[in-house]
Design a binder for these strands. Structure first.
Lengths: 162, 162
DNA sequence: ATCAGCTGTTACGGTTTCCGTATCTTACGA
DNA sequence: TCGTAAGATACGGAAACCGTAACAGCTGAT
């Protein structure tokens, strides 16, 4: 019987739990940070989430964005209105496009300095934190974070489909 | 002049940037996951954030929670109403307390299974991901995440004060 | 002891946001 | 060509957010 597991297996499990706990805490803390940043910019949390997606995953349509975030298309219209009013994005309607109904949303860079300024403290802390690790360790961390992000993506997709 | 920096320093900087990028992506993805979980439970994103804080940082007062999250006290009343209606928390008014005005909010465990169930996919993926690292690497990752969370906490505090 | 001032919580009301429905435009298939 | 489907947004009711105020209770000074 294996009621007594090897000590190193138990230690592993504990460390894994510790990692998940730390990730939960980090996630929660970053959500709070984002909220404060949003307040400074007169944007809602979800607005920042959408802006991030637009900036990173290229120009895309309001509908596609709404499906990705899990919001009603009409809600997305309101979000994009706020972002456009603030000069964060533009809606582009290309008369030469294959589908002339579709609108593509593009992130602007005019206010990026302002945005980065609000994250400056966190950014500096991260630089300082990374400076304490050697190259090999940094690679391990970077890879872990990337794969955790992918896992999050998959979990989100499952939840929105099932 | 040092316009030419050593190759390993440049590589370091790139890896650090890659880490910050991956963290941003992870954060955004987890925000989306939380949103979908919230939809299933008829809770707003901020409700889940608050519930997490209450569960992890013990029983505390509505006012303290509002300050922590950066919300108006009246808004917190609405959030706690929703959480209480859903059976996630209870408001306790201890007649024997030092300050009889104060209310403490406590997290219940009745619906925890339901909550964990929604995170089951992500949880399993994280276990799987962690299984690919050795003990030393896991320790490095756990420590990094913990310290990143602390950095987030500091950055948030600075932003809410300054 | 009493009173003034402060803190904690919540009710109330105006403003904003969210989302279901309807509408308009355009694409696609029969 | 016509009917159906899909994309984006206007409209309206419901909900949420937050400023103000009201009430209870603590604290310190006179």
């Amino acid at each position: 019987m294996d009621s007594v597991e090897p000590g190193d297996a138990r230690r592993r499990r504990r460390t894994t739990t510790r990692i998940k706990e730390a990730m939960r805490e980090l996630n929660n803390q970053l959500a709070l940070l984002n909220h404060h940043v949003g307040v400074r910019l007169s944007l809602r949390d979800v607005d920042l989430d959408c802006l991030d997606l637009i900036a990173r995953h290229g120009p895309l349509s309001p509908g596609a964005l709404a499906r990705r975030v899990g919001l009603h298309p009409a809600t997305m219209t309101g979000i994009l209105d706020r972002l456009q009013r603030g000069g964060w994005i533009v809606r582009e309607r290309d008369p030469e496009a294959t589908d002339r109904r579709s609108v593509t949303v593009r992130a602007l860079r005019e206010r990026n300095a302002e945005l980065y300024g609000l994250y400056a403290g966190m950014n500096a802390s991260m630089d300082e934190l990374c400076a304490g690790y050697d190259e090999t360790q940094l690679d391990v961390i970077a890879d872990f974070l990337r794969r955790a992000g992918e896992a999050g993506r998959r979990a989100t997709d499952e939840l929105s489909e099932g």
